[in-house]
Amino acid sequence: MLFVTSGPGMAENKPPTGIIEGNLPANVAALKAQMTYPDAWQSGHFSDFTRWQQHARQLLRSALLTPDSHKPFAPQTLMEEDRGSYLARKIALNITDDNRINALMLLPKAAGPHPAVVLLHDHGSKFDIGKEKVIRPWGDAETLASAQAWADKFFSGRFPGDELARRGYVVIAIDSTGWGERGPLVYEQQQALASNYFNLGRSLAGEMAYEDMRTVDFLTTLNNVDSKRIGVLGFSMGGFRAWQLAALSDKVAATAVISWFGTYDGLMQPGNNVLRGQSAFYMLHPGMPAHLDIPDVASIAAPKPMLIFSGGKDKLFPPQAVEDAFARAREVWASQQADDRLVTKSWPELGHVFYQQQQDEVYPWLDKWLRP
């Protein structure tokens, strides 16, 4: 038998190398073809939406690799500042059975109960501040300067939490692991931290997601909060956290997502940030993409109100990936006769930001659903 090892036409039969551009495996096309999302609402495998929702939510909850917590929150006030119509307060609480952390809260002085918003900070590769990115800090000039510079860059100089408190909301923000008083990390530590969570039988992304769930649960224990009117707002990684939290917790009444949406196929392209590892580990639940695409997870929250904004010039989220995800989510809300409860919008002139013109649409939208 003759084996031909070279000659015309043999180049195309050469085995691919193990890694191709963008840290992707050489067989990425074959692997992507297997991502058919069999647990999505659109899969055709489900006829009852509520049962699908329960099934998909349980899939996601199991993927967190994080046990339920039972320890009382035991909040303690550490600092307080009067800001006119509302109070700014730093508290300590047991966010889980394993972690006691600090949080920032804003509390209207008027009689409650009030609607509330959980604010979820971004990644930004800036770890010295977390909760202080979205609520103006006090008591430390260096922290305030860092936070104000961040607000100037991404939020038109305004702190979202303080804007919401002026509108009559109770607001809370915590640090995720690695940020602010729970860090600060340096960028290169993220991958090792994530792998060591796996070594401990846990998940870095799962801990972040579960602590966000517990933040909502904490608000429901407060007498000055209307537990039926709790909203969620997040920018960038906080936007990811926002739709994820709405999917995980049926206690979330309305959700605003800024600058984190797309499909796995659209985002897993050479050059995209999700292919770098490191920061991506905060958003990776092992095995979940074999079951549900990104918009499928967000759609677990349907038919509750959700707003999703993206910047047309956002280099992290290609326009086609975003529009494909928008369309997939719209199918789900439409299937529940809830088209009016889902807002999807791309801002052609904007990048990866949450500027004042966007805020001026988001805050009244939250009012519509949380302060009717």
Rank of each mutant, 00 (worst) to 15 (best):
Q244N: 06
W333E: 06
L144S: 02
Q76I: 10
G238T: 05
E12G: 01
R158S: 11
N99K: 09
I101K: 10
F326Y: 14
L107D: 11
T36M: 06
L31P: 08
K131D: 09
D340L: 01
N23E: 10
K313G: 01
F235Y: 14
A329W: 01
D140L: 09
V117S: 13
I230L: 05
A165Q: 04
A290E: 12
E331L: 13
E181F: 03
G231Q: 10
Q337H: 15
T221G: 04
G201Q: 14
I129V: 15
S6G: 13
R276F: 09
W365T: 13
G262D: 03
D39E: 03
G124A: 07
A29L: 01
P15E: 06
G44W: 09
P72D: 04
D340Y: 01
D217L: 10
S259A: 15
L219R: 00
P364S: 06
W243P: 12
L64T: 14
S195T: 13
W333C: 02
F317L: 15
L120I: 09
I308P: 02
G262C: 10
A26P: 03
P305T: 04
H114T: 11
G161L: 09
Q76M: 09
A111V: 12
H291Q: 13
E323G: 01
G266N: 04
W333V: 07
D68R: 15
S195W: 13
E80W: 00
W333I: 12
K133M: 15
M1N: 12
H45N: 15
L342T: 06
N27W: 02
F281W: 14
K345W: 02
D340E: 12
N99D: 06
L245W: 05
A280I: 09
V134N: 04
V232A: 14
F73Q: 04
S43A: 14
A334Y: 00
F49W: 02
Q53E: 09
G206K: 08
S249R: 11
Y264A: 11
I174E: 15
A329D: 00
E207L: 15
A247M: 10
F261H: 14
Q58N: 07
L204D: 05
I308K: 05
Y37A: 08
A145L: 08
A321W: 03
L24F: 07
A147Y: 10
G157H: 06
T255I: 03
V186P: 02
S227N: 05
L350W: 08
W243S: 07
L267R: 06
Q53L: 04
A325N: 04
P318N: 14
W150I: 00
L2V: 03
R371V: 01
T220L: 08
G139T: 02
V332Y: 05
W365Y: 11
A254Q: 09
N13A: 10
S62L: 03
D175S: 11
D212I: 00
K126M: 07
